[in-house]
Design a protein around this nucleic acid. Sequence first.
DNA 1: AGAACCTGCGTCATTGATGTTGCAAGTGGG
DNA 2: CCCACTTGCAACATCAATGACGCAGGTTCT
Lengths: 195, 195
Amino acid sequence: MERKRPLRADVERTVRAILEAAERVLGANPAATMEQIAEEAGVARTTVHRRFASREALVEALAAWAARQFHEAVASANADSAPPLVALYQVTANVLRVKTSWGFAMGGAAVSGDSEVARVHADVLDRCERLFLRLRETGVLRPDTDPVWARRVYYALIHEAAQGRAEGADVDALATLVVDTLLRGVGGQGSALGG
Amino acid sequence: MERKRPLRADVERTVRAILEAAERVLGANPAATMEQIAEEAGVARTTVHRRFASREALVEALAAWAARQFHEAVASANADSAPPLVALYQVTANVLRVKTSWGFAMGGAAVSGDSEVARVHADVLDRCERLFLRLRETGVLRPDTDPVWARRVYYALIHEAAQGRAEGADVDALATLVVDTLLRGVGGQGSALGG
DNA sequence: AGAACCTGCGTCATTGATGTTGCAAGTGGG
DNA sequence: CCCACTTGCAACATCAATGACGCAGGTTCT
């Protein structure tokens, strides 16, 4: 996967431009054409094909690029060693930072392919499961909570938070919002249904 | 939009079969072809084209079909008159019943078109906003909660609940889970972050 | 300056999806 | 029983997206 010879600086810039354009365009419309991506990137369609052998290759490269940042975001949060609640907050903030800019590349449409990318996401999922188990053991999560459901809610909340707000929004505030909503919900004190 | 003459019974059955097949196939892969839909429905591709002038028309009919059930599900819950918490639970259960079977037809990909369908969804959104305002006034929601955020979380939770569980899962249990998670979150007592 | 490289543009081939039509066969209702 | 209707099948016409070249012009590196 490594390039044989170092590429010229402008080539790298072009590739970056294409990837960012692809993120924007495909984020707005997953069925967008190479033409639209090229236009958004400010290059000719043929140039895109020169850099990426096929559409599939482009999407995969995009997913790989995002997966790298995703992995780094999660890994740098010390999810396994830090106190679970702190780790949860750290992971949330880091992931939000990435996901607000690379929402499509991290979504299902891009990760469908197997190989490296799927492994990274599976790995993150694993860390997440472990983190939620620790959260429950620590008493942060209610003991009767299904960790899988909790994790899915967590993912959904992150998605929502990354989706709605503009890129400029304060990531820390968003992370607080997500964690807070995840743990306390939006209800007042005695608002639970009888069960 | 009404048919001039009553159609033969088997025609109606064919249309239903196509719509249901479209829901299943497009749910699994939004970019699926007419061929695949026809195959799933057990009819020839030309038959699909006879019943639906174009792909767009098919998707729109699918969305309209789902929108009708969606609207009915929400309307029959008396969201405006019943006590807000009861209404919330009712709406949740009713919507879940529909959404587990018509997930794609109610999602963004199908509703993108304007016209009737968009109006129904906008209407439901309105009722939702009002319901959440009432929930906050009643003290069910924390006073400092952003109603928009609350509603978005609610939508996301419904989506997750409808997504994961098999169709047979107990709708009432799911609704309880959603409302419970929405209001209380998944955390224990003193688990909120310091603010 | 000279070589190597990249890009834009025009062109072309291919492929897959869409939509249409004619025809023969099967079914149900009157 | 006969007619109207619907379906499956096969063939056809489009059309858009993908992907591949070759060439001319411009940039960068040495």
